[in-house]
Simulated assay, not measured.
Amino acid sequence: MGVAIVWLVDAIISLMIWFIIGSAILSWLFAFDVINHRNRFVSQLAQFLDAVTRPLLEPFRRIIPTLGGIDVSPIVVLLLLNFSKIVFYNMAAGPIVAILG
């Protein structure tokens, strides 16, 4: 059971990292007019990624100003997610597996 919990936490953090990367790439594609919002699939994908990543990014967007029109909050959140993943593996994963098996 402990291994499953460790896997689940790792999978959730990894998915959030990929969602943030995908959202950033999609926003760049919109900014450079490579794709547009009129495409239904692209619009739904953008709405989904925005809904998933907004709760993590918004607190940092309020604190961190944009640098020359570039939002650096995704970079900060990616660094914090990777940091939390390392901390989780080094401090919590071992005891969880040892206790729950």
Rank of each mutant, 00 (worst) to 15 (best):
residue 98 A to G: 03
residue 1 M to H: 01
residue 72 V to A: 04
residue 5 I to T: 10
residue 90 N to E: 07
residue 2 G to S: 01
residue 16 M to A: 11
residue 72 V to Q: 00
residue 79 L to I: 15
residue 21 I to N: 04
residue 43 S to F: 10
residue 67 L to G: 02
residue 78 L to P: 01
residue 16 M to I: 07
residue 31 A to E: 08
residue 41 F to M: 13
residue 52 V to Y: 05
residue 26 L to W: 03
residue 5 I to M: 13
residue 69 G to N: 09
residue 96 I to Q: 01
residue 64 I to L: 15
residue 60 F to H: 03
residue 42 V to N: 03
residue 21 I to E: 02
residue 30 F to V: 11
residue 46 A to P: 02
residue 48 F to M: 11
residue 47 Q to I: 11
residue 39 N to S: 15
residue 62 R to A: 12
residue 51 A to S: 15
residue 25 I to Q: 05
residue 91 M to T: 11
residue 80 L to S: 06
residue 81 L to G: 02
residue 15 L to V: 13
residue 56 L to C: 07
residue 31 A to Q: 13
residue 85 K to E: 06
residue 101 G to D: 07
residue 37 H to A: 14
residue 5 I to N: 03
residue 88 F to K: 02
residue 75 I to H: 00
residue 25 I to C: 07
residue 74 P to S: 08
residue 83 F to N: 00
residue 39 N to V: 09
residue 17 I to A: 06
residue 51 A to H: 10
residue 44 Q to Y: 06
residue 91 M to I: 13
residue 14 S to F: 11
residue 4 A to P: 00
residue 57 L to G: 02
residue 32 F to G: 04
residue 83 F to M: 13
residue 25 I to F: 10
residue 93 A to C: 03
residue 9 V to G: 00
residue 20 I to Q: 03
residue 64 I to A: 09
residue 26 L to C: 07
residue 30 F to G: 08
residue 16 M to L: 15
residue 51 A to I: 08
residue 25 I to Y: 05
residue 28 W to A: 10
residue 78 L to R: 01
residue 81 L to E: 03
residue 53 T to L: 05
residue 79 L to G: 07
residue 41 F to T: 14
residue 68 G to H: 08
residue 3 V to E: 12
residue 52 V to T: 13
residue 13 I to N: 05
residue 20 I to V: 09
residue 26 L to F: 07
residue 9 V to P: 00
residue 95 P to E: 04
residue 79 L to H: 02
residue 88 F to N: 01
residue 85 K to P: 01
residue 67 L to M: 15
residue 4 A to C: 00
residue 60 F to R: 08
residue 34 V to K: 12
residue 17 I to R: 10
residue 29 L to Y: 04
residue 12 I to C: 08
residue 71 D to S: 05
residue 84 S to Q: 02
residue 89 Y to I: 06
residue 4 A to M: 11
residue 23 S to E: 09
residue 59 P to G: 09
residue 72 V to F: 06
residue 28 W to Q: 14
residue 4 A to E: 13
residue 78 L to T: 02
residue 17 I to V: 15
residue 68 G to W: 04
residue 92 A to T: 00
residue 54 R to G: 02
residue 40 R to Q: 14
residue 1 M to A: 05
residue 67 L to K: 05
residue 27 S to I: 07
residue 27 S to N: 12
residue 11 A to N: 09
residue 58 E to G: 00
